[in-house]
Design a protein around this nucleic acid. Structure first.
Lengths: 231, 231
DNA sequence: AACTTTGGTTAATGCCGTTTACTTAACGTA
DNA sequence: TACGTTAAGTAAACGGCATTAACCAAAGTT
């Protein structure tokens, strides 16, 4: 129509797109993160986004990856801020921090840790989002590694772990390339289930039927974790 | 168009609508549960559904309520089947059953326990879905009540519970009209967090990064719960 | 017989993801 | 410097979505 006289000063970038998507997510919720809305916010039209992502789905997966990276960066920063403290304090810091981040970013949390939309059939089982998620898990695992080296916590010996579980833990250890006893990885997973389970219930409002404020209950959950880690 | 010659032999019912919605949910996933699809399946047109529900949103909330009722009924039936066994066995049965139901009904589970779509502003904070959810929770709580009457498990005395938590537990107890010590309710909530947290992570695939089959880990979670209940 | 209620219909609005065909600025190169 | 190519956008269209408005016929009521 001629109004167009495009300047072509600068093309959009993937980072700008995901940032816009995130802003929409935060301000208006997951269902507001549409291709048309993102494009509208950026002064473009929806089909242009197909130059950057093959589908809406993939854009969201990429956003999830970015969110994991944000989470990881924020955790690392928080841990560096308390690097001089003893290891128990740092564990508790990590736990509290994860809960805080999650409560402060409920919509991001929902996208990352809620019910996954079924991944499209042909897509990588190891996509960007999963890679970033794995890196995030690794950051937590590093804490356990350090604790184990510094002050080993009580674990179950390999031969007393259920064989089916033992095989999976062995495979997991090999894929991670981290030389820890299987029982140590098991404690890591159990702590992670405790932590993320408690946070998920709270963020999703599934504890409100009994506790409007679940913080004190979470403190007890952290005590459980501390107990398991021999603190 | 005249093809219409409606017979008006029978009007649709709310139950038929939610059953159709559930079938779509199970067979094609949450995003397939549209008003148009439901109506299509029932040989109707979408606007007709507005005679039964004020919005798509409310229809889904009602479906969630029905799913809770299904869950409750199934749990009660399972517990009756083992009613003659000792209380520990029944607890373990309830836990395993909840996991099994959830893994067998992942899409229903996602709708009920996943990230909640934000409820419309003017809607009841105590809608049908929440009522049914409360009844489900009550069924689990009844197990604790029975256990407590029969073989009390170790609890924290009221005065050693964090004051903020104590106040909330007191309010919860009054709303539930169930005369149990606060420490007992606390253990109930802790066990529920453990159980549902572990199941959520597994159903949503958030443990697959380490464990393709999380059953043995879940068994350990049940052991934790058993420990807390003094078994 | 006339009126009201019940439970549907069609048509329309304005979203949505996605595809197709087209445009045009920028770049590489002969 | 002219020319082909690529990169990055556009507009138009399709079919599907929730929702609303206007309408209609059968069933029940007075």
């Amino acid at each position: 129509m001629g109004t167009g006289r495009r300047e072509r000063l600068r093309a959009a970038t993937i980072a700008e797109i995901t940032q816009t998507a995130r802003r929409l997510l935060v301000e208006q919720g997951a269902e507001a993160v549409t291709l048309r809305a993102i494009a509208r916010e950026m002064g473009m039209t929806a089909p242009a986004l197909y130059r950057y992502f093959p589908s809406h789905e993939d854009l969201l997966r990429h956003l999830i990856g970015d969110l994991y990276n944000d989470l990881t960066g924020s955790l690392v920063a928080r841990l560096e801020a308390v690097a001089s403290q003893d290891i128990e304090t740092r564990f508790r810091t990590a736990g509290h921090w994860f809960r805080r981040w999650s409560l402060d970013h409920p919509r991001e949390y929902g996208l990352m840790f809620g019910a996954p939309f079924p991944r499209p059939e042909g897509s990588d089982p190891r996509d960007y989002a999963e890679e970033c998620g794995a890196r995030f898990g690794m950051t937590f695992l590093a804490l356990f590694q350090e604790l184990w080296a510094q002050k080993p916590f009580p674990i179950v010996p390999d031969e007393r772990i259920d064989p089916g579980l033992r095989a999976q833990l062995t495979a997991y250890r090999e894929s991670m390339q981290i030389p820890l006893p299987l029982g140590c990885l098991l404690v890591y997973l159990q702590c992670w289930v405790l932590l993320q389970g408690a946070v998920s219930l709270e963020v999703f409002g599934h504890l409100e039927f009994a506790l409007p404020d679940a913080e004190p209950l979470f403190a007890l959950t952290l005590d459980d974790i501390a107990l398991r880690l021999g603190f």
